[in-house]
């Protein structure tokens, strides 16, 4: 049973990791906790649902469609709700603006779709593979593989391309980067686009895996993903992946071996412990305060 639960945890954790990546990328560059990120994930899930059920597209095409849709959604949100505030006020004002966007988006979806949970259509026949005592479903394998591919892709994008280089420069020092001729606004826009696309991928996969989407699914997922990003060390991309996987596994093992009624308390309790022992998160860099 332990290995089965471990696989359950890794699957859940990989969806957390995909959402956490968006948080961490945005944070790394403009130090904003983008609270609307959970809602982008929700919109991604619904966009995927629309493409699969109404247009009858293949699930992988729908996945890409939802990612593209959320890219634009993320850029639009940044343009409307964050850019006008940037540089004019404290980060907290931007945080409130993000909360406003989050309330707006989830209510909007509730008005469009109703507050009921909607079933995600079955996209394929699910095979179960028996490996010794372990039952592994084909869906779990697909989710793990797709998330791994997306994360590797992201790593390549950031390490090998020009825009990735620009992003790294901006995250080190936004001002200095723009003095070096980098169009910081554009880099921020791209960061939102990439983060949102990853969240959308997470949304579609969660929809496929659990067969259910609903307008308020983003709130708790967003919170957990933020926790994952902080656990891994916010601003660090490998940190978000490790944080997501750790949180997912901890949560599932907490239910399996401790108590399911204290599930969230266990996850957050461990998070607090880790942060007290290692204040910069698992992969975060220790920053010395300067005057």
């Amino acid at each position: 049973m332990f290995i089965e639960q471990l696989v359950n945890g890794l699957t859940l954790g990989s969806t957390y990791a995909l959402i956490a990546l968006g948080y961490t990328m945005v944070y790394g560059i403009i130090q904003l906790i983008n609270f609307a990120h959970g809602e982008i994930y929700m919109f991604g899930a619904f966009a995927g649902l629309l493409l699969v059920s109404v247009f009858g597209l293949n699930i992988f095409v729908a996945l890409i469609g939802a990612m593209v849709f959320c890219m634009f959604l993320g850029m639009l949100i940044e343009r409307i709700a964050y850019r006008p505030i940037r540089g004019k006020s404290s980060r907290l004002s931007a945080l409130i603006s993000a909360i406003g966007v989050s309330i707006f988006l989830s209510t909007l979806m509730a008005l469009i779709r109703g507050t009921n949970t909607t079933r995600y259509p079955e996209i394929m026949k699910i095979h179960t593979y028996h490996l010794g005592s372990l039952d592994l479903s084909s869906l779990q394998i697909i989710i793990l593989v797709v998330s791994a591919l997306l994360m590797v892709g992201l790593q390549l994008l950031i390490q090998k391309t020009r825009i990735g280089k620009a992003m790294r420069a901006c995250s080190q020092d936004l001002e200095a980067a723009s003095l070096m001729g980098i169009n910081a606004n554009r880099v921020i826009s791209y960061t939102f686009a990439i983060g949102s696309a990853l969240a959308a991928a997470g949304g579609v996969m969660v929809g496929v895996y659990y067969n259910a989407v609903w307008p308020y699914m983003g709130t708790m997922a967003g919170l957990k993903a933020f926790a994952a990003a902080v656990l891994g060390g916010i601003g660090s991309i490998p940190g978000a992946m490790i944080g997501g996987l750790t949180l997912g596994v901890l949560e599932i093992l907490g239910v399996a071996y401790l108590s399911s009624s204290y599930k969230d308390a266990i996850a957050f309790g461990i998070l607090i412990l880790v942060l007290i022992l290692r204040p910069q998160g698992i992969m975060g860099k220790k920053i010395t305060k300067k005057v």
């Binding site: 359950n8 969660v206 609903w214 699914m217 708790m220 399996a256």
Partner: peptide, 14 residues
């Protein structure tokens, strides 16, 4: 379980 959650894999495995 909790309301509004979708992940019940651990409970069902148990």
């Amino acid at each position: 379980i909790n309301q509004g959650e979708t992940d019940f894999t651990a409970q069902v495995t148990k």
